[in-house]
Design a binder for these strands. Structure first.
Lengths: 145, 145
DNA sequence: CGTTATATTGAAAATGGTTATCAATATCAA
DNA sequence: TTGATATTGATAACCATTTTCAATATAACG
């Protein structure tokens, strides 16, 4: 049975001998509700609106914590920004990134994954993870000049 | 007729109304000779050995310049380091990256590229560039614990 | 319940890679 | 040569992210 993110976090903290705090719960909730691909700064901005008392560092720390707990993934896109993505139980996926408006579209393609394994095999390489990003213009932005 | 990198750079500089300098020539030569995937810091270290007078900033600036000239490509890998890759006339390729020893193996696979286009088409996305990186252990490192 | 050891917090300082500043210098067209 | 200007080296500035540290909150224990 799948648990709420909040419970997941609580269990993780207990298991690690760490403590539950209202800040962590708050940040997690806002992170999950916000959708995906948030930078620490963006998340902090959202947190600040309803919880002005929470500090910048705590947002950063919590994001790292969530990554450690396997609940968030840290991603560096080619534009230089590091963003975090909430990691539900859903499978691996890759990204289409619009370089004009910043939109990020997710996709998965198991044939590509299979071919990646072929490549790895030929190089006697053991793949642990991968990253595939296609940069260009989304449908919207192709019309604009 | 293909030109030496040095000539390429000279032509680019002249075309842009910029000036040729011994520092730029030196840095370019060392960059090209060094192989690929150098960080600015690594390149600076090599430059310093034979040309202690050349400054840190000049290495950074020259790398940016080369990127602007289309002679180098800036790449951010997931480990957080930005590296530059000398860009010869050779086609696009992707990377296998060993997370233990840092080795970087290049590969190309046109079937993967074709599938990427399929994905893009389905999303009405116009791909300008892409990045595919497989992280894991190289043959060497799989043996070690 | 209080107590207590210790994890966490917020604010601010520190860090690390990269870029900007600036006076001195080199380049190149005239 | 000269002169306008691009470039350089040293250093300060930047900016996102981390670390530090004293104050505070948490959770286990008595």
């Amino acid at each position: 049975m799948k648990k709420h993110p909040a419970e997941q976090l609580t269990e993780y903290l207990a298991g690690q001998g760490l403590k539950s705090t209202s800040q962590r719960d708050t940040i997690l909730k806002i992170f999950v509700d916000a959708g995906r691909h948030l930078s620490a700064e963006e998340l902090y901005a959202r947190v600040k609106k309803t919880h002005p008392g929470i500090g910048y560092a705590t947002v950063y720390r919590t994001l790292k914590l969530l990554a450690g707990a396997g609940m968030a993934e840290e991603r560096r896109f080619e534009d230089g920004f590091t963003r975090y993505e909430f990691k539900a139980a859903k499978g691996h996926h890759d990204h289409l990134i619009c370089t004009r408006c910043g939109e990020i579209i997710e996709f998965e393609n198991e044939r590509i994954e299979a071919l990646q394994q072929d490549v790895a095999r030929k190089n006697r390489f053991l793949v642990k993870s991968h990253k595939l990003e296609l940069y260009g213009l989304c449908a919207e932005c192709q019309g604009k000049r």
